[in-house]
Structures are given as structure tokens and as C-alpha cells.
């Protein structure tokens, strides 16, 4: 009963958003391309996009919030999706303005974009590159795991070793998270490993994290992932 209602409201909202989104027409995707650059550290968009630290953003426009398969969303996003809410242009605009005001428990470490036109440009870019939720790039075949991450996920993590290694993390990462330094507690292994691999090979840049990650081998990443997945 509850899920049926959620499904119906999702469909209604999706339909209304798709037909009446004046916000979508106001953005300039060319301007949005540069604004997307910081997002790229965590979110893939376009052909071949897969989940990394954050979920891929293909078909984000009108997609049900927190519901794309293969990604472990925070409760706030998953609950929003269960209630049938979708990423229409208005929801995206409000979220991008101040992510933690909109979804206080989101794991996304991003302070937000103050300028409204910048937000509209960014949304326009995401629509141009990733299409709507019903578009072809949303093909399930695209949701694959990066082989380097898959190899680490296949290792059975040594939890006590991971707990010891985690003491290096807790010097900066609080359980409750900070304004810029996120919590790692309870992070899904796939998300943790994807993030650390990106830091290790330098595709995601941060001086401290790159230096920390460079000395972590696959065994260490698997141990840490196994430990953090157990913390709550």
C-alpha cells in the first residue's frame, strides 16, 4: 500500500517535472561545463559513467532520489526516494544551493553553489550530458564496477587490521563529520574503495588524502573498507 502510493506519486511528480520545468530552460550548458569540474572528482557523467565515490549522474534529471541501483545512499536520500520524490530541476536547484540544508545527512561533501544562475547552468549541463531518467544512457549495462575497485572488493578485509589502520583516519575524520572533512563511518565498501583508489592514483586531488592513500596497498584498503562498513 505504502510502496504503491510512493510509486504513483513518483510517476506523477516525474511527469509533471518533465513537462513543466521552466528552470531547465534558463541554464546554459556551456557555462555549466566548467562548473561541473569539481563534481567530477566524485560523480561520473556521460557515456560509460559508473558509480565512483558518488553515484553516476546519467539521467539525473527526473530520476527518483536515492534509488539508482548499485549505490548505497544515505538514509535521507533513500527515504526521499521511498516517498516518491524525484530530482526535478527545483529539487536539484535547492540541493545544489546548500546540500546539507536540503538533506542534512547526505554524505556528499560539497558546500553548495551560492549563485542561482550557476546552479541553473550546471543543471543544464547535467541534462545535456546525461539526459533524463528515461534516456538511453541510463542503460543498466553502463552500471559496471571499475576493475581496479572490483579487485579490491574481492579481497576479504582483515577487520582488526582495518581498525588499527583507521586510527590514522580518526585524527581528522570525526564520527559526526565536519564542514569539509566527511565522516567515513558506515561507508559502503564500494564507495570507500572507489574514493581511496581515486586519491591513490591522483584522479581526485587533495594533498593530505593523496599522501595518505599512496602508502595504502590493496590489502590495507580492503581491511579499512571492511572495518568502516561495520562501524555505525
Amino acid at each position: 500500500m505504502r510502496s504503491a502510493r510512493a510509486l504513483i506519486s513518483a510517476l506523477v511528480l516525474a511527469a509533471s517535472a518533465a513537462t513543466s520545468s521552466p528552470l531547465l530552460a534558463e541554464g546554459d550548458p556551456a557555462q555549466g561545463e566548467a562548473l561541473y569540474r569539481p563534481c567530477r572528482a566524485c560523480h561520473m557523467l556521460g557515456d560509460g559513467a559508473v558509480h565512483r565515490v558518488g553515484p553516476h549522474l546519467n539521467g539525473i534529471i527526473d530520476r527518483v532520489i536515492g534509488a539508482v541501483p548499485g549505490y548505497d545512499f544515505s538514509d535521507d536520500l533513500a527515504n526521499a526516494g521511498a516517498e516518491g520524490r524525484v530530482w526535478d530541476a527545483d529539487a536539484l536547484d535547492r540541493f545544489l544551493a546548500a546540500p546539507r540544508d536540503y538533506f542534512p545527512r547526505t554524505r556528499m561533501v560539497f558546500r553548495g553553489i551560492r549563485d542561482e544562475q550557476d546552479r541553473l547552468d550546471l543543471i543544464a549541463y547535467m541534462l545535456a550530458e546525461g539526459g533524463r531518467s528515461d534516456s538511453a544512457v541510463m542503460d543498466a549495462a553502463n552500471i559496471a564496477i571499475d576493475p581496479e575497485i572490483a579487485a579490491i572488493l574481492a579481497i576479504a578485509g582483515d577487520v582488526p587490521y582495518g581498525e588499527y589502520l583507521s586510527s590514522e583516519c580518526t585524527a581528522c575524520h570525526r564520527d559526526s563529520g565536519g564542514s569539509d572533512i566527511p565522516t567515513i563511518k558506515g561507508l559502503a565498501p564500494s564507495a570507500f574503495i572507489a574514493g581511496m583508489v581515486d586519491y591513490r592514483n591522483g584522479t581526485r586531488e587533495h594533498q593530505v588524502m593523496n599522501t595518505v592513500a599512496r602508502r595504502l596497498g590493496d590489502e590495507e584498503l580492503a581491511a579499512l573498507a571492511a572495518y568502516f562498513a561495520r562501524t555505525e
Binding site: 580518526t170 581528522c172 569539509d180
Partner: peptide, 13 residues
Amino acid sequence: RESLDWYRAITSD
């Protein structure tokens, strides 16, 4: 901002 987060984290630790 990172240094402020670190301060709160290490004192918690």
C-alpha cells in the same frame, strides 16, 4: 576550514 575540522576531530580522538 579543514584545519577547523581537524581540531574538532583530534580533540575528539
